[in-house]
Amino acid sequence: MAEQVVFVIAAAGALISGVLVVTLENAFRATVALIVTLVSVAVIFLLLAAPFVAVIQIIVYAGAIVVLFLFVIAYLGERSPPGMEDRLAPYQPFAWIVVIALVGQAGIMLANSDLPGLRDEPQATGDIGSPEAVGRAFIDDYIVPFEATSAILLVAAIAAVLLAKRAIKFEGGR
């Protein structure tokens, strides 16, 4: 019972803030809406017996990535310049159609799915979400993706340096 209530609240929060993320004009406000969405999703993770992932979600996503966004928005100016007319405006309905079609397909698929246990009560789970469990899984079974991910992060860091360097030079720096 409690689980369902918490789920509904968290889901509603995620969806509503999601709507705000995609509709707010002010970039700052949109980013803040994203924070709300991320926190709601973290709650969902907790419900799903993934405490470690939930915490990482808060620290990394809401804590680092969103901060990055905020910095860049501050640097570039929060309001999008007026710019030209949206030349793709007439085609808006197509976008709606396509998204509704996709979600609709998903819905139909779920409705007809024979996946065992899809609509049942969730079973009790063992220890799958604790840091120890995640750590063991990484080291024992998924060491390669682990290392690959570190490589990706390294590349991203170098790329960031390079991109920033060019920017500085362009502005007359060394």
Binding site: L88, Y91, F94, A95, V98, A101, L102, Q105
Partner: peptide
């Protein structure tokens, strides 16, 4: 050259393929 068009086309493709598979 517009990213949004490409996004749209990708999604439309996925929808069509899904319908075909179904």
């Amino acid at each position: 050259g517009l990213v949004r068009t490409y996004a749209f086309v990708m999604v439309a493709g996925v929808v069509s393929l899904g319908a075909l598979l179904a």
